[in-house]
Design a protein around this nucleic acid. Structure first.
Lengths: 192, 192, 192, 192
DNA sequence: AATGAATGAGTTTTCATTCAT
DNA sequence: TATGAATGAAAACTCATTCAT
């Protein structure tokens, strides 16, 4: 039995199992037993690696956020020659792409949002996401708008993204092309 | 103890207690015992009146939705001489007012949203809200836009409302005046 | 509202409701609520008339026993000119008739038997039945057999009756003609 | 705590505890808490091993039946050189022996009988016992009687066994020698 | 590192009973 | 007499966690 590197294997494995469990059964149905079964390991090792169920959930959320901003960074690098609205749209599209790469994250993300309302840790994490998304938007928008306006538009775009995620969660998925089209048309209106 | 009319007293009383309990402790913390204590009655009567905890939660969500659309109807009647953007803004403002009348509903509503993702009944209820809000918006918008455009704008406005609620839930409340200002400015841009 | 004679109406009504409830749902399913519903009255009056659920059950069992021995007495009077085996067979037939007059009593009676094993009161009642049946059999048998033999045959016949009831309860009813035929053939063998 | 073979230890241990609990307190008094206490373990492991209280009860009944037919088989093998009535009497004696080996089974068995009347699973189990006992009797009786008669006598003997068990349950035990004596005398009458 | 065994705390729900009307 | 309202006690069951191996 290899003794080294086990955490590096087990942790992502359990996080993925947690995401799937939450997606399938909701937060209340995602018991350690279910998650363990899904990962093919004993529920007891969740405690071993994460110090408890809550630890796993925290890591899961952090992982989701980290993954998103990693993706965003990559996309922004890839499109660094774009400008104006196109640059903003990269953020928008990435927001929706994330949910397409892994469709189950929609429900999970929204579940964490609800959790955030009564848990310090999750609230902090959710705010990190929320702030960073807005900051990224402002960053691009202030190139084409004055800072004051940029902040307002960023707030609108961020709200649109979240609102469309929310509504998408109700319909079993987000309609990426329709969503991006509408947001782009708004931006064009605002900027031209 | 009075014999008649008790259901009419107990049911709203328990629904209100449920809202407060969810607001304070989240869904997982809102046990029948907590709700009962908050209402000053035995947990057992939740079963008596609602056939179980789930029955109470369903009625609570229905009550929230009913209350909102009642308020909306009243506001639309009061402002029936308004026209164009003003008419649409009545819907927007009412959406945010609802949360001001009873600040705790923000968390509760979002909690139900998360619940909806894995429960038939709550999904149905959430969709009712979602559809009716959009329908109301389309109704007003088609007076000033062609039907196709009206639908798109309605989708955007509805997403903005929901997105701002969602973000507001993170900050312990919705900034009504800022939110309505931003939505109005969008509408003016779209319509003028 | 007539004030007199209510007990005389309510008591048998509730006893009959109890029998039906036990027949349909078993002892554990026969709650005061179910019995009350079946009788079309509030469960609370069971306490009023019987001092509690247990009181009702006791009265129900007493009623079953009383009814059986009343029937037996009538049949023995009706057939008082019969003699020998025929006289004994009157008792046997009546035992099975009782279950035909009211088919649901088979399950109920067996349920009480089980109850008797852990309750003083019901044990006493069951023994009353048990003894009186045997006594009745001995009474008739000693006319044709010496007392010692009469007791033995009575024991066998009583056991056959009870055993056939028991087995009948498994098959949803007692086959009266087959049962009586077998018992008679035994008696003929024993006596001739 | 040992890791392997625990189910093989715990399951019979809990079944025995269930038998004792039912014997002492009846079915309604045999709660998981009582059974757990009697077995010296937490009530929660009943769920662990049997998937719930009902699972334990089913296994308990199965165990009782299995044990009886195992004993019967052994006795029939031991007495395989016997013939005629003696062979039949082996079955009869074994039926009563079973209750002597473990006196508490009388009450328990009768309790299950009552349970069977309103539960599919227990009804099926009880019928298995009922049929197998009769089949075993027919098997021996057809060596000395024609098949038709063998069936009738088997029915009588089976009813006698059950009836005497039933009556024995009232008296805190079965009088084995008296019971077997009476049944043998019946068989001699029938066969000679 | 990993697990099966075991548990205690806590959840919803059921139910007989009491009580004011 | 009869009832709807209300409750307390207790039931089965769930679940995160701990522990010896």
């Amino acid at each position: 039995m290899p003794k080294v590197g086990m955490p590096a294997i087990r942790k992502p494995q359990l996080i993925q199992a947690a995401i799937e469990a939450i997606d399938e059964r909701g937060f209340s149905g995602a018991t350690v037993s279910v998650i363990g079964k899904k990962a093919g390991v004993s529920p007891a090792i969740i405690n071993h690696y994460f110090g408890g169920k809550n630890g796993l959930l925290e890591e899961t959320m952090k992982s989701l956020i980290r993954e998103f901003f990693l993706l965003l960074k990559q996309e922004l690098v890839r499109g660094k020659k774009a400008s104006g609205i196109d640059k903003v749209m990269i953020i928008v599209k990435t927001s929706f792409s994330h949910s397409q790469t892994q469709p189950e994250v929609v429900k999970v993300w929204m579940g964490f949002w609800a959790l955030a309302m009564h848990s310090h840790v999750f609230l902090r994490l959710q705010r990190v996401y929320s702030k960073r998304l807005k900051t990224a938007l402002v960053m691009e928008l202030k190139a084409i708008l004055d800072i004051q306006k940029a902040r307002e538009v960023a707030h609108i775009v961020a709200s649109l993204i979240d609102g469309m995620w929310l509504r998408g969660s109700l319909d079993g998925g987000i309609n990426k092309s329709y969503s991006t089209k509408l947001i782009r048309s708004y931006l064009e209106l605002e900027i031209s």
